[in-house]
Computed example of a mutant assay.
Amino acid sequence: MSEKLLTVDKLVVEYPGKGFRAKPFRALNEVSIEIEAGKTLGLVGESGSGKTTLGRALLGLAPVTAGTITFDGKDISHASRKDRRQLSRDLQVVFQDPYTSLNPAMEVGEILAEPITIQGATQKDAKARIKELLDRVGLPQDAANRLPREFSGGQRQRVAIARALALKPKLIVCDEPVSALDLTTQARVLDLFLQIQKDTGVTYLFVSHDLDVVRHISHDVAVMYRGDIVEQGPASVVTVDPSHPYTQRLLLASPVPDPDRQEQRRANRLRLLAQQAEQNEQAGAVA
């Protein structure tokens, strides 16, 4: 049985309300997830569901109001800045937009060397590691001497992935890492993530709004809706035959190449939306 690398237990994240005496906004409501070492948990939901907030809480970028985050056997719910610097060796992130996540004034070699040298590596060791990283993500060696603007979106995301891998982390939070890419490039980058996991055993929390994407890369899937986990289980079940109406709507929102099937999907999704609206109206009347 694989060990749990990450355990999130009843996590609550609240932000101060806007305005005098405004109630706090609860972004996460007692969220609980687990990820086994070497596996991928796909976290899926629409914009505003709270999925990115969960990823930010793991990275120390969102306040933890209640609950616990246990990483590699240690409680990191309220880790200090010093502890976070140490955690950066084992906990990394790949952001959504490769155009803004890389410093445009730095060459790729400098971008990759920065986290390595900060941890105390020599220039010689850093140079060898950069060569290894470029090979790992399928970029030529001369990429080290070029600026980010000289690359395509997919290549820039490969640079971002290489930077995340620089310190050989145990867990990478992937925050919508392919949503800014075209479909062909998406497929190639997803295959790269899979190959890296196969070769290194790294663990992923893969955040996405697209069930088709998480089906391709995830072992397990958790579905978020308005700050709650509404469904979770094996990817082969949740992304193919979901039980929760919200997950069913997400599945029906994914386009298919067959026009007749797409029309039927659209009709079914509208039916589910109408049912949800009716339920919300009834709940409001009861309240």
Rank of each mutant, 00 (worst) to 15 (best):
R146A: 01
A162W: 05
N280V: 09
M224G: 06
V31Y: 06
L5Q: 09
D75E: 10
V137N: 11
K170W: 02
P169Q: 11
A187T: 10
L205Q: 08
T40S: 05
D228S: 14
E263C: 00
P259M: 08
D72I: 04
L43H: 02
V207R: 05
D191S: 13
S88C: 13
A37N: 02
S218R: 05
L165H: 08
H78V: 05
V159D: 07
L252R: 10
N280I: 07
S218P: 06
P63S: 04
R266Y: 07
V159A: 03
A166I: 10
P148A: 08
L91G: 03
K124D: 15
G17L: 02
E34V: 00
E3Q: 13
L87Q: 13
T68M: 00
K51R: 04
A162E: 09
A274R: 14
G201Y: 03
A277F: 02
V12L: 09
V223Y: 04
T100W: 06
N145W: 10
L54M: 13
E30M: 00
G50I: 03
Q232E: 11
L194K: 15
A113S: 14
S218W: 04
A287R: 14
V31Q: 09
P255V: 04
A79C: 03
E176A: 01
F20E: 05
H78E: 09
K74E: 14
G50E: 06
F25K: 11
N280W: 07
L28Y: 01
Q157R: 06
Q155H: 05
D135E: 15
L252Q: 05
Q262D: 12
Q92Y: 11
L59G: 09
H244F: 03
V159R: 05
Q262E: 14
R215E: 14
G201E: 02
Q86H: 14
I116A: 10
K23C: 00
S236D: 13
T203A: 11
G201W: 02
R81D: 14
I172C: 07
E263H: 12
D125Q: 15
L11M: 09
D72T: 02
R266V: 02
R129F: 08
F193E: 07
S101M: 12
P177M: 11
D125C: 01
Q155I: 04
L54Q: 07
Q155N: 02
G42C: 08
S218Q: 05
R269C: 12
K51W: 06
A164G: 07
G233R: 13
L112G: 07
D258Q: 10
E30D: 12
A121F: 11
F95Q: 07
V173L: 06
Q157E: 09
P24H: 08
L147P: 00
I161F: 09
Q276Y: 03
Q275V: 00
V178R: 11
V12S: 06
F25D: 00
I76Y: 02
G48P: 04
L183C: 00
H216D: 12
E281A: 15
A143W: 07
E34D: 11
L183N: 01
F206Y: 14
D125H: 05
H209S: 09
I196M: 05
E231P: 08
K82W: 10
P115E: 13
I172D: 06
Q96F: 11
T100E: 12
P245H: 06
P63A: 04
H244L: 04
T53V: 14
Q232A: 01
A267K: 15
H244G: 07
